[in-house]
Simulated assay, not measured.
Amino acid sequence: MSPRRSYTIGGALVAASAVFGALAYPQLPAEMATHWNAAGEIDGRTPKLLALGLFPVLMAALLGLFAVVPRIDPLGENVEQFRAQYDTFVVLVLAFLAYLQAVVVAANAGYEFELIQALAPAVGALYYYVGVLSAHAERNWFVGIRTPWTISSDEVWKRTHDRAAPLFKFAGVVAALGALVPAYAELLVVAPVLAVSLYAAVFSYAEYRRVGA
């Protein structure tokens, strides 16, 4: 996906989020549920103007940040080498936030469902694409598995990302299964990606020591 196309789509998602919030506003309670505990019980509420306004504002801020990153990264020329995957990731992150907004609005509008179960497929898709992005990412300061050891060595960066990419994809598939197994949805969404992240960090250190970088 080209930068121009991705930021056009991103801008459209921000606008759609703002319009959706405005249309939903009259049908929602003054205090919206915005946080659920591990048992799926509401344990946090926010005034609806703030709750609905937060999504387009956050999405716009992230879109701006994603646009700036390749320009301010000291290794920005490396980002250009996987720019297509980077720009697709931008769109997916914003689409995920738009989906999250829709789920929160639906929950506050009276629809009954397990929140984590509803989010599992979207989270899984995001994890899976992190694996795709990892397979293409070149060394930089903002995107990828950034440990002291990967940042310090092109070889360690490549080996770590080559090892982690399929694991993130697998974590995405496992997370998506949370939609089918609601009793274990939270575990399936959280545990695999934490395990992969920890493994990648340890692997990067071991590789750094092994190659003597």
Rank of each mutant, 00 (worst) to 15 (best):
A191P: 14
F203A: 11
L187T: 15
Y99A: 14
A118Y: 01
A16E: 03
V93N: 14
Y128T: 15
V196W: 05
N78A: 02
Q117G: 07
W149R: 09
A18I: 02
S197L: 09
F142K: 05
T147L: 06
A16L: 13
R146P: 01
Y86F: 15
Y99V: 10
L167N: 01
A67M: 05
P29F: 11
V190T: 12
G172S: 09
S2P: 08
G44I: 06
P182D: 10
V156G: 10
L94A: 04
G11D: 14
L92T: 00
I151Q: 10
A22L: 13
R71P: 11
G124I: 01
V103T: 08
F55R: 11
L180N: 13
K169S: 06
A183N: 13
D162M: 12
T34L: 09
A15D: 02
A185N: 13
V193A: 10
I42D: 02
D162K: 08
D87V: 00
H35D: 01
H161G: 07
A61R: 03
G76A: 10
K158V: 10
L52P: 09
R45F: 12
T88G: 05
T160M: 05
R159T: 03
G64R: 07
T34S: 12
V211G: 04
Q81Y: 03
A165F: 08
A109H: 08
A120P: 09
L52S: 11
A122F: 10
A24T: 04
I145K: 13
A122E: 13
R209L: 10
T150W: 02
I72K: 06
A84P: 03
G53A: 08
V193Y: 04
I151T: 12
A84I: 04
P121M: 04
I72E: 05
R139G: 06
A206Y: 10
A84L: 07
R5K: 15
A98F: 15
L97V: 00
R45K: 12
G172Y: 00
A200R: 00
R163E: 06
L54G: 15
F168G: 06
G124K: 03
P70T: 00
R146E: 03
L65C: 08
A122M: 04
N140Q: 13
L115T: 09
W141M: 14
N108D: 03
S2Y: 06
F170N: 03
T147A: 07
Y208F: 15
F168L: 11
F142H: 03
G212S: 09
A24M: 06
V130W: 11
R45W: 07
L28K: 10
L177G: 15
E207H: 10
R209I: 09
G64L: 09
D43C: 13
L177I: 15
A18P: 08
L97P: 00
